[in-house]
């Protein structure tokens, strides 16, 4: 096996293993962890639609997730309590499965997206991740205090005249784009597992917000490294192995 062959997938996944647990902390803060699953499914559907339409799948996935993230706010009043995410998830899943069932091209990509074939990552995906991860992390750092304040003291946040849109639509968009990028690489469930489980475990024990972020990051990285090695060793698709490792870690800690 050539080391170079696996270096690109390893680095691509590593960038996402840093980003997703941190993003997941803010999604969990806002009680929007279901959003990760919704955006991942919408991104998968968008990628397949783009493929069928003769466009690059990554462009379709990212565009669909971005539209879902930004458009969700338009229906926020009518689809409260997480209903918007459930609707997005079901729409994304049904479109993706129907396309995969009826188009041979889409079937192959559909399997890759749902299996999470990290080892097929290309140099373009690595570049996209390498450019996006620092930008998204930087934006999260800027938004962090307002996200915490808007959740904990919503009235205080409003009366201080702080603009809500960067915190609300800005974060939704950021989450959607990050999840789309992750879905293209780690698969739907691999991306969701990295967003959901590390913060879930970290929030149980950390004594402060910074500690929670660091713990989630550490758990995500350990699980990613273990899953990468295990999937390679046993020649298995990466997404399910990552999910199994994270679930096992979760059960041990919980």
């Amino acid at each position: 096996m050539s080391t170079d062959l696996f270096l690109i997938p390893f680095l691509t996944g590593l960038g996402l293993a840093i980003l997703l647990p941190l993003l997941g902390c803010y999604l969990r803060l806002r009680e929007e962890w279901l959003a990760a699953l919704a955006y991942a499914h919408v991104a998968a559907a968008g990628a397949l639609l783009a493929l069928v339409g003769g466009l690059p799948p990554a462009t379709g996935g990212i565009t669909a997730a971005a539209l879902a993230g930004a458009g969700k706010r338009l229906f926020a009043n009518r689809l409260s309590g997480g209903a918007a995410y459930a609707v997005l998830l079901l729409c994304g899943w049904s479109v993706a499965v129907l396309l995969a069932a009826n188009q041979s091209q889409a079937e192959r990509l559909g399997h890759a997206l749902f299996d999470g074939q990290l080892y097929f990552s290309s140099g373009e995906q690595l570049w996209l991740v390498a450019l996006s991860v620092p930008v998204v992390l930087g934006m999260l750092r800027i938004l962090s205090r307002h996200l915490l304040l808007a959740h904990t003291y919503p009235d205080f946040f409003r009366i201080r005249g702080l603009r809500a849109w960067p915190t609300q639509i800005g974060f939704d968009l950021l989450a959607a784009l990050a999840l789309a990028l992750a879905t293209m690489t780690l698969g739907v469930m691999g991306a969701f597992a990295l967003v959901f489980i590390p913060p879930w475990l970290a929030f149980r024990r950390a004594t402060n917000w910074r500690g929670g972020l660091l713990s989630a990051l550490l758990i995500g990285l350990v699980a990613y490294l273990a899953a990468f090695a295990a999937a390679l060793w046993f020649d298995q698709p990466f997404g399910p192995i990552l999910a199994v490792v994270l679930v096992a870690l979760g059960l041990v800690v919980a």
């Binding site: 803060l29 205090r145 003291y153 009235d155 205080f156 009366i159 929030f203 004594t207 917000w209 500690g211």
Partner: peptide, 27 residues
């Protein structure tokens, strides 16, 4: 005028790794 408002609502912090220092830093 810079306003600060305390309502009777309890800040929703259950299950979150937020310390007293985090809370004070927010405001």
């Amino acid at each position: 005028l810079r306003l600060a408002l305390q309502t009777q609502d309890v800040p929703p912090v259950d299950g979150l790794p937020l310390s007293g220092c985090d809370l004070l830093a927010m405001t």
